[in-house]
């Protein structure tokens, strides 16, 4: 059974339709690519699933349950986790403490257990310098910390919103391997938003292409990238 089901999900901001009638299913162990030009509605789609926005119409089902109006913290507890396109490490806390938060509040652990669990998660991601203030981490370390923060919530479904942005090619390879590994280890359904198509090719079996809030194509990347409507969307409607 699909872990996550979206039914004609729609979000309007005033006159703008950011997400328009999206139908989608995601199953455990699957990595789904979510691509589309700037402003296509990728981040908004994640916000609707994670509860940051309430849909204007349509529904979000998780484990068969309609969670369309559940608050974000409830969804986080149920196992929906996500990173943020504009990352916001929590300042005045160390990297380890940043990771502890999910263990404490999404998974209900006490402070001590959360510390141990966070340490383990960071080790599994080969994230060092966990005692450092978040401001002192390298970009790669920061990105790994952001992923560790989502794993701390005990996710079943995970969305990564442009986590590879800003990394060089070695770092990108490192993080691609990390994502593949956690998908297997935790049997996750992962949605990956990326503008770098190389990353999408290496990571995903299936992609959806969003344009102006609508899914205009889906399937394996190699097929989808040949479709005229996709090429057109990326070239700005002139091809």
């Amino acid at each position: 059974m699909s872990k996550l089901v979206l039914q004609s999900l729609t979000k309007r901001f005033g006159g703008l339709v950011a997400v328009n009638g999206v139908d989608l299913e995601m199953t455990e162990g699957e990595i789904l690519g979510i691509i589309g030009p700037n402003g296509a509605g990728k981040t908004t789609l994640i916000n609707l699933i994670s509860g940051i926005h309430v849909p204007t119409s349509g529904n979000v089902f998780f484990d068969g349950k309609d969670i369309s109006t559940f608050p974000a913290h409830e969804r986080s507890k149920m196992g929906i986790a996500r990173t943020f396109q504009l990352i916001h490490p929590l300042e005045n806390l160390t990297a380890l403490q940043n990771v502890m938060i999910g263990f404490m509040f999404a998974q209900g652990m006490n402070q001590k257990d959360a510390g141990v669990a966070a340490q383990k998660t960071c080790e599994s991601l080969k994230l060092e310098h966990v005692e450092r203030d978040v401001g002192q981490l390298t970009i790669l370390e920061t990105k790994k910390m952001e992923i560790a923060k989502t794993l701390a919530c005990g996710p079943k479904v995970l969305f990564l919103d442009e986590v590879m942005a800003g990394l060089n090619s070695d770092e990108t390879k490192d993080l691609i391997e990390t994502v593949k590994r956690i998908a297997q280890e935790h049997n996750l359904a992962i949605g990956v938003v990326e503008h770098v198509m190389g990353v999408i090719k290496m990571l995903t079996a299936r992609v959806i292409v969003l344009d102006a809030g609508e899914i205009i194509a889906q399937g394996p990347y190699n097929e989808v990238s040949q479709k005229p409507e996709v090429i057109k969307a990326y070239l700005g409607g002139e091809a």
Binding site: S50, G51, I52, P71, A72, H73, S76, K77, A81, R82, F84, H88, L90, E91, N92, L93, Q97, M100, I101, G102, M104, F105, A106, Q107, N110, Q111, A114, K149, A152, C153
Partner: peptide, 21 residues
């Protein structure tokens, strides 16, 4: 743990909510 909740809220409410706070 109150300290962690409050620090998260002060830093970024959306991040805090998405971490179950």
């Amino acid at each position: 743990r109150v300290h962690y909740a409050l620090t998260a809220i002060r830093n970024d409410e959306i991040v805090a909510r998405s971490s179950g706070v």
